[in-house]
């Protein structure tokens, strides 16, 4: 193990803001994309179900 301690790992040789700022933002962006994709999928299914109910209700 090259870091020696947990503190030195988080310290990143003085580059903590740059390194963790990069990784932190990347994690936030990817998690946000996953959350928004799930929401979009749920919405699309609801919309389609509504359209299906409307089609059933209307005389055809």
């Amino acid at each position: 193990m090259q870091w020696g301690s947990v503190e030195s790992f988080f310290h990143m040789g003085g580059y903590a803001w740059y390194v963790w700022g990069s990784y932190g933002l990347t994690a936030v962006v990817l998690i946000a994309e996953i959350v928004s994709l799930r929401a979009r999928r749920r919405r699309a299914i609801e919309e389609a179900a509504r359209a299906a109910r409307a089609a059933k209700g209307s005389p055809s």
Binding site: L37, E47, A51
Partner: peptide
């Protein structure tokens, strides 16, 4: 995942989507 959501959105009235939901 996104293309599947777009398919559901845009083909909402298609028979296969109606059957699916």
């Amino acid at each position: 995942v996104r293309v599947r959501a777009i398919l559901l959105e845009r083909e909402r009235r298609a028979a296969w989507v109606q059957e699916l939901v």
